[in-house]
Design a protein around this nucleic acid. Structure first.
Lengths: 113, 113
DNA sequence: ATAAACTGTGGGGTGCACCACAGAGTCAAT
DNA sequence: ATTGACTCTGTGGTGCACCCCACAGTTTAT
């Protein structure tokens, strides 16, 4: 069992983020001491937290992470990962297109100077 | 002189956006009728509005657009365009890296199944 | 026993770039 | 003159994913 400050250190998630994740039922503490409401996390929490950090870095929204977590067999995971992959490819395409337009605009600016 | 509804049509900016742009002094009406506060735009406004639409599509923030507009010689424009170009390249790099990580993650997932 | 460090709760705030809406005044066309 | 369309102002809300703060209770170390 990890107390919150330890869990913050090993996961890299802030205490506010952990609190928020508990609130939206994305990642709830493994145990809450009924005497003082202190929240404790365990190794299972740790595994999930590391996964969440990874998914977050892939641009998963909270909702997407919840839908991954809700399905404990993680069958949704690959599907959403594929979706996210397409999204990233699309974003790259859009940025590349934008870059082209921007270069074009820079060119036209030079002509007019 | 264009009345607001005409200006909305020819620029593609919404009336709320125009109002907002006026509020932050990004693009102010060419004339405001003191009798009824109706806002009117002219061809100069039109030129600027078209530029703003373009810059916005390049991902310029309001502040960046303001700094372009504040310098009427547009000397800042090319500089910021170049900055934005770098930003876009960086974003593409980051997304590409993320794609790599995601594919790696997908791979490792398959191994563990 | 005392002080420092930790943790909880509730609620507000953040940033960005707008959008929405109510109510009142105004204009254009018939 | 009337109707419908237009425009104004002020204010609140949006979405996302948190962050921050005060205050109070609790734990840990000395």
């Amino acid at each position: 069992m990890y107390k919150i400050s330890e869990f913050v250190n090993i996961t890299g998630l802030s205490k506010e983020t952990l609190r928020y994740y508990a609130e939206v039922k994305l990642l709830e503490p493994a145990y809450i001491d009924p005497l003082n409401n202190y929240r404790y996390y365990d190794d299972g929490s740790y595994f999930l937290a590391i996964l969440l950090v990874k998914l977050r870095s892939f641009g998963f929204t909270i909702q997407e992470m919840i839908s991954v977590m809700d399905d404990k067999s993680f069958a949704n995971l690959e599907k959403i990962l594929q979706q996210k992959r397409s999204t990233i490819l699309l974003q790259i395409d859009n940025l590349t297109a934008k870059l082209g337009e921007l270069d074009e605009f820079l060119e036209s600016g030079r002509e007019n100077d």
